[in-house]
Amino acid sequence: MNLSLQTKGRHGYSVEFSPFFPTKLACATSQYYGIAGCGTLYVIETGPNGLIPQTVFDWNDGLFDITWAENNENILVTGAGDGHVVVWDINQRRGPIKASKEHTKEVNSVHWTQTRQENYFLSGSWDKSVKLWDISRSQSLTTFLGHEAIVYSVRWSPHIPGSFASASGDHTVRVWDARRPETPQTVIPAHSSEILTCDWSKYDQNLLFTGAVDGAIRGWDIRNPQTPICDLRGHSLAVRRIKTSAFQRNILASVSYDFTTRLWDFTINMAVETLEHHTEFVYGLDFNLFKPGEMADCSWDEVLRVFTPKSLINPGMTLQH
């Protein structure tokens, strides 16, 4: 599969497949590269006629990240450039059902809990804070402080209830217990530059990956984080987002300001495929949880792509089930 959608006048920041439907995904975009203007949320269906926008929502500032609810197939949360956390019902086309502004600066990252025990999601912001939200409440439950710079990424553990990681411009990734906001459980000085992204292994509860402005991707055993378990080099510019595969234990993907999307086998410390199908910074990235090998990415070049890399069609020796 190799499909594309033009998001004309809107620069792609985040894309995520639905956790309920294999043919549905959403994309968060911003006008004028997120520096000014509004944001647009696309809800898209894939099919024989390509990528078809089913619903399009506008917000009065850029939209920088997106996450689907895990308890309601119609609910999406976005992070906005004006500090709002915005909740949408894709069946209500008039606008958001809720918008909460507690962050004082841009909301870079939002993520719904992956352990299905709570109605919780997280938001991370340029204001250096992480906030914990309950979808049924209008105000946040908890604020996590300690980062000394922008929080670029927040990710719930897919294994341990209440555990999440946050990646920051202060060169650290931190692991938190949502029940103990006073101090992180672990602080890892993971790179010598700003850390823009992190993600957990879907197979090992102790394995956390980071990507940074230095172009490197590193894997960490959070029980013993003194030395990375892998150090993946190949991107020539900042790594903007990484995602681990739910189907192959040893595979992760990354997108970068160097215009590429890459597939890596971290057990052999090398890229297994490089895709050069964008002409600007690539920001958004996701794997389809229903279709092994199917992926999506989006870029500042105003193109959203859904595709299956060759290395995931014919995995060969490097991809282990």
Rank of each mutant, 00 (worst) to 15 (best):
T46N: 02
A28R: 02
C38K: 15
C38R: 15
L63M: 12
Y32V: 07
P53L: 03
P48F: 12
G79V: 10
N60T: 12
F21C: 03
G83Q: 09
S18N: 04
A69S: 15
F21Y: 13
T40E: 14
L63K: 08
L51T: 06
I44W: 01
T46I: 02
T46E: 11
A28Y: 04
N71H: 11
I35K: 15
P53C: 08
V56A: 04
V56G: 00
P48Y: 14
T55W: 02
D89S: 05
N60I: 10
L76F: 10
P53R: 01
D65I: 06
A26D: 08
I66V: 15
F17A: 02
Y32A: 10
G47M: 06
I35A: 11
T55F: 04
L25K: 01
L63T: 11
Q31C: 09
Q31I: 13
G83T: 11
N74Y: 15
V43F: 14
K24R: 14
D58H: 12
I90M: 13
G34I: 10
N91R: 15
P48H: 11
D58L: 02
D65Y: 12
L41M: 14
T67W: 00
G37A: 03
T40C: 10
G47Y: 07
C38H: 13
H84W: 10
I66F: 02
A80L: 08
N60K: 14
W59M: 04
G37D: 05
N72E: 11
W68G: 05
A69K: 01
V87D: 01
G83V: 09
V77I: 14
G62F: 06
C38I: 10
I90F: 04
S18D: 06
A36W: 09
T78E: 05
G83H: 05
P22C: 05
W68F: 07
Q92R: 14
T29S: 05
G81D: 10
A36V: 08
W68K: 03
G37H: 01
F57M: 07
A26G: 03
G83F: 12
G47V: 11
N91Q: 13
N49H: 13
A69T: 08
I44P: 01
G34F: 06
V85Y: 02
T78D: 06
E73N: 04
N49W: 06
I52F: 00
T67G: 04
G81I: 09
G47I: 06
T55H: 14
I52W: 00
I44H: 01
Y33C: 03
N91F: 03
P19V: 11
A36M: 09
W68S: 05
T55Y: 12
L76N: 06
